[in-house]
């Protein structure tokens, strides 16, 4: 396992930075420059690198899609949110249309934001490419075909010229797929979702999004702690604050940064990546949540430090 690359990190609905948002960032960047001049692009880029991420960058707005580089020639993806469109463009730019590729795609569930990118995934239309789409839901194929039926979309699923195979995976046991050990866990979410643990060469990545953790169920907590055990990276649904997730947004199927830290600490995981950001959250809000989460980890640390990051579109985590 070499790295995780994030193509879509937003929950529920894609969002875009508005003109007003870009302008506010530019105002802050120009004010921070304090009259400095830059002789070339490199100097200007170095200046931007020194600024806080949310000042000169953005967390982005594509819905869930994460690539896992395993070191093998095939591709491994988690979910088909809108982020799979730029992923597909990058794959086509790299290989062209005449070199067949294999894509292993693991689906958390079939909610709209996790499947909406497939009709825009260029490699699916190219003969010779192979797509293996895995999930815990037996109805996965039907959901993907339905979203490309009238009146929802003008291009039918049958327009795909790649070879597409659907594979239903049983949770709780290890599957050998694409050179990895893959295990699924049931998650509490409307219509149910599945988390994945990918293992290869002594490295483990957990992808656990759209998952509410019921604090009243210690058995469930223990099951997730086992699932996260010693993971190198846990990509975790931290959509809401703890207060919201157990009050006004209880049973909405999402979790919080606080619960992510607690589960990862008890599991001795190394890196918690906050994922599936609330669409209403601004860059400043996500930055504040990240800072708060790092502080919470520091306050509650009893063993080795847990590294904390907040996913953004384009982020890479080397493993």
């Amino acid at each position: 396992m070499k790295r995780a690359r994030f193509w879509g990190t937003r929950g529920s609905l894609p969002v875009a930075l508005t003109a007003a948002g870009v302008r506010a960032k530019l105002v802050n960047v120009l004010r921070a420059s304090n009259g400095r001049t830059f002789v070339d692009d490199r100097q200007a880029a170095e200046y931007l690198d020194d600024l806080d991420f949310a000042v000169a960058g953005t967390y982005g707005g594509h819905s869930s899609c994460v690539e896992i580089e395993t070191g093998e020639p095939h591709y491994v993806l988690c979910d088909l949110g809108s982020g799979v469109r730029p992923f597909g463009e990058a794959a086509l730019a790299r290989h062209g249309a005449s070199a067949p590729q294999t894509y292993h795609i693991f689906m958390s569930h079939m909610h709209w934001d996790h499947i909406m990118g497939l009709p825009f995934f260029g490699p699916a239309y190219i003969p010779g490419n192979r797509l293996y789409i895995y999930g815990g839901h037996p109805g996965l194929e039907g959901a993907l075909r339905r979203q490309q039926s009238p009146p929802s979309f003008p291009v039918d699923f049958s327009a795909f010229r790649s070879t597409i195979e659907f594979v239903t995976l049983e949770p709780g046991r290890r599957h050998d797929i694409a050179g990895m050990g893959v295990t699924l866990i049931h998650q509490y979410h409307g219509g149910e979702s599945f988390g994945y643990r990918f293992e290869r060469g002594g490295c483990a990545i957990v992808y656990s999004t759209d998952s509410e953790h019921k604090l009243t169920d210690p058995d469930s907590s223990e099951a997730f702690i086992d699932f996260f055990r010693d993971a190198d990276l846990v990509i975790f649904d931290a959509m809401y604050s703890l207060a919201d997730s157990i009050s006004v947004k209880a049973d909405w199927g999402h979790s919080s940064n606080i619960v992510g830290v607690e589960l990862c600490q008890r599991a001795n995981a190394r890196h918690l990546c906050l994922f599936h950001h609330e669409p209403a959250s601004t860059d400043d809000t996500i930055e504040r949540v990240l800072s708060d989460t790092r502080r919470y980890e520091e306050i509650t640390r009893t063993g080795a430090p847990l590294h904390i990051s907040a996913a953004y579109d384009g982020m890479e985590i080397d493993l």
Binding site: S241, L242, A243, D244, S247, S256, N257, I258, D292, T293, R295, Y296, I299
Partner: peptide, 15 residues
């Protein structure tokens, strides 16, 4: 101060 921080981080001061 530490518990106050936890209350703020979890947004419980809004409840």
């Amino acid at each position: 101060p530490v518990v106050q921080e936890i209350i703020a981080i979890s947004r419980f001061h809004l409840i």
